[in-house]
Design a protein around this nucleic acid. Structure first.
Lengths: 340, 340
DNA sequence: GTTAGCACTCTTTAAAGGAGAGTGCTAATA
DNA sequence: TATTAGCACTCTCCTTTAAAGAGTGCTAAC
C-alpha cells in the first residue's frame, strides 16, 4: 500500500499531537482539532491502514493510537521542518557560553548545562578530547626532586596537564634533554597516533635509544594516555521526570544508571558516526534501557576533525524539530569557538 | 521525664529496625524480634512515653512508630557504635583510588564514584580547590602570538592551567618579565589571599607599577580566579531510587534538581563547618527539599588546611554507622594522598 | 510495675460497578 | 467507489464498597 498525501497529513497530526500530549489520540480528536475536511470515520479507516503499514500502534483495543518508531523515523527524515533557532534563544546560548575560550572542561560543562536548560531534556557531551588534534609541544615543569608536570599543548590551543613521577632526580639538564627528545620524537603527531604508539611496543625502542631516560618514557606515556582520554558529561538528569514516560520509577532508575555509568553510554554514542545532527530512535540505539528513548547528537570539530559529540536524550516522543535546531546551532557555535 | 536505660534500648531497636526496613514498627514486633525480656504491653507503654518525649512519631493512629529527627540525633550522638571500616572494603577503596596522585579532578571523580558505590547513597564531593594552598610558582607557556597558558603550581603539588589572551604580542622578553613580576609579587601567597587581592583594587596598583604589563594583569587575575574556583561533583544519583522514600516522583525530582543545581548545594555544604565527620539531619539542613534527608560529610585537608568535603546524601533513615565509617576512612585516605 | 485481653481505629488491598473513550463494522449516501 | 453516520462492543480508569490486617490504648488481673 502506498502512503498517500492524506495519510501523511493524518500521520503528521498524530505525531504532532502525541509529542505534545503523550496521550494516545483517536480519530474524533483529529477530525475536530486538525481541520482536514474529512470525517472521523474516514480518518478511522486511514488510521487502520496506517496501523497495518506499521506506522501506528494501539496500546490496547479501544484506545487511541500512538506513533511507532517507524513513524518517528519517517517524521524525522521527511515530515519535520528544519528550522533556525529563534534569535532570542541564540542570544541566550552566546551569552551563557561566552566568547572567551576557557579551559575546555569549562566549555563542556557549560554546554551541557545550557543544552539541558534549553531543551528540557537530559543533555550529554562526549569529548574525545584530543583525538585528532596534533601535538604542538610538550612542556615540562619541575615540581620537586622526583616529579614534574607535563603540559601538553595541541595545535588547536587545547591544553592539558598531567603529573609524572620520575625515577631519576629532576635536574635542569634532565628537563632539557627530556624536552628535546620528546618533542623531537612527537612533533606534529596526532594524539590518536600517540595513543596507538603507546599501546604498541614502539615506546620500548624509543626508551632504548635514549637510555638515560628509559625509566621515564613509560611513565610519561601512561600520563599522556590518561590526560588525553575521553570523557562524558551529563546534565539535566532531573529533566527526565518532566515526562510521564518515566513516572515508572524502575524505568527512570535504569536509564539514570545507564547515564551515570559512562562507559556504556560512551560505547553507544561512539557507535553513532556521521557529521552534523544524527537522530537515533528507540531500538536503533540497540540497548534495552534505551528502547523507549531517542538520542539526538551532533558532532563538533577542532581543526576539521571531529573531537566530540553533544546530544540530548529523551522519550521517543521527542520535540525533534526544536532539539535539532538547538543542537545544530550549539555544535556550530562551539566548533567556531574551538577553531579560534 | 528521664530517658532510662530500658527506653534507650527500645528506642535503639526501633531505629535499627526502621533503618533497615523503612516500615513503621509496632510493639509486638519489638517484643518478638529483640529479646528484651519484657512484654509487648510494657513496650507499648514505653513507646507511648517516648512519643510524648518527642523521640517517636506515629504516621497515623494504629500504625507502628517511626523515629523522629530528635531520635536520630540521639542515635548519632550517643547510641551508635563507631566502627572501623572492614578490611576488605578498605582494600576496595585503596585499589580504586590508586596510590598515584593524578590530576586532582580525577581523584575527585573517583572518590565520588567509590563513595556512592560503597554506601549505595548519592555521593558529593565539594572541592574548594586551592583555597588555603600556597602558590609556589606560576609558569607561562607561549601558545601563539597573543595567547599563553598560565600553569599554576601550589606547594601541595596541585597543578591548574588557564589560557590567557594578551593585548601585547607574546615575546621571549615579555614572558620572562611576566614570570619575574608575577612570581615576585605572588610568591608564597595563599590562593585565598590571591582571590581577595583580585577582588580588591590592589591589582590596579600592581598594574600601574609595571606599566608594560598593565593590560595583562587584570586578564591574568581573571584567569586565575576561574582556575581556582570551587567545584561540586555528585555521583550515584540513581541510588536515590533504592529507597521507598523517593518512590514519589515529585520528591525525587526536587531533590535531584537541588543536587544538579550546584550553587545551592554548595551553599548548604559550606554552612557545615567542623573537622572530621559531621552528620546533619533533616531540618538541621534548613532547606525544604532536604527536610527528609540527612547529609553526612567529612573534610579533607591539604597541608593542614581544609580544602574540601566529601559526603553522602540519603533519607534521614540512613545507615549512619556504616556511612560514618566509610567517610572517616576515605577522607583520611585522600588527605594522606594529597599531603604526599 | 508488668502483663493479658479486647474493643477500636485506620490503612491497605481486592472486588465490583459504572462512566468514558475509541474502535470496527454495517448500511446508507454522494 | 469513496465517504459518512450510527451503533454495538471492548477496554481502561475511577469510584465505591467490603474485608482483612496491624497496632494501639485502656482496663483489669497478676
Amino acid at each position: 500500500m502506498r502512503i498517500d498525501d492524506r495519510k501523511l497529513k493524518i500521520l503528521q497530526a498524530v505525531i504532532a499531537d502525541y509529542i505534545s500530549t503523550a496521550q494516545p489520540i483517536g480519530s474524533r480528536t483529529i477530525a475536530k482539532k486538525y481541520k482536514l475536511g474529512i470525517s472521523s470515520a474516514t480518518i478511522r479507516n486511514e488510521m487502520s491502514d496506517l496501523e497495518e503499514m506499521g506506522y501506528l500502534e494501539q496500546p490496547h483495543t479501544s484506545a487511541g493510537r500512538v506513533p511507532s518508531e517507524r513513524a518517528y523515523r519517517l517524521y524525522v527524515d521527511r515530515l519535520m521542518q528544519i528550522r533556525n533557532l529563534p534569535r532570542n534563544e541564540q542570544e541566550i546560548i552566546i551569552r551563557e557560553l561566552g566568547e572567551r575560550i576557557d579551559e575546555i572542561e569549562s566549555i563542556i560543562r557549560k554546554t551541557a548545562r545550557i543544552l539541558s536548560q534549553l531543551t528540557r531534556y537530559t543533555s550529554l557531551v562526549i569529548n574525545s578530547h584530543l583525538t585528532g588534534c596534533r601535538l604542538r609541544r610538550i612542556h615540562f615543569i619541575p615540581l620537586d626532586s622526583h616529579s614534574l608536570v607535563a603540559v601538553i599543548v595541541t595545535d588547536s590551543g587545547i591544553v592539558k596537564n598531567t603529573i609524572i613521577k620520575t625515577a631519576d632526580p629532576v635536574t635542569a639538564e634532565y628537563l632539557e634533554s627530556l624536552t628535546r627528545v620528546v618533542n623531537d620524537k612527537f612533533e606534529d603527531i596526532t594524539i590518536e597516533e600517540l595513543n596507538r604508539c603507546i599501546a604498541s611496543e614502539g615506546y620500548k625502542k624509543l626508551a632504548y635509544r635514549y637510555s638515560q631516560l628509559d625509566s621515564f618514557i613509560p611513565v610519561l606515556m601512561e600520563g599522556l594516555s590518561i590526560a588525553t582520554g575521553d570523557e562524558v558529561y551529563a546534565d539535566g538528569m532531573s529533566n527526565l521526570f518532566n515526562f510521564p514516560e518515566y513516572s515508572d520509577i524502575s524505568k527512570a532508575k535504569s536509564l539514570l544508571e545507564l547515564i551515570e555509568e559512562k562507559e556504556q553510554l560512551m560505547e553507544i554514542i561512539s557507535r553513532i558516526g556521521g557529521k552534523g545532527v544524527v537522530v537515533s530512535i528507540g531500538s536503533e540505539l540497540d540497548n534495552t534501557c534505551m528502547k523507549d528513548c531517542s538520542l539526538v547528537t551532533a558532532s563538533y570539530r577542532v581543526g576539521g576533525s571531529e573531537i566530540g559529540r553533544i546530544g540530548v536524550i529523551g522519550p521517543t516522543r521527542m520535540e525533534y524539530e526544536r532539539v535539532v535546531a538547538v543542537l545544530e546551532f550549539i555544535s556550530t557555535y562551539i566548533t567556531g569557538m574551538m577553531e579560534r
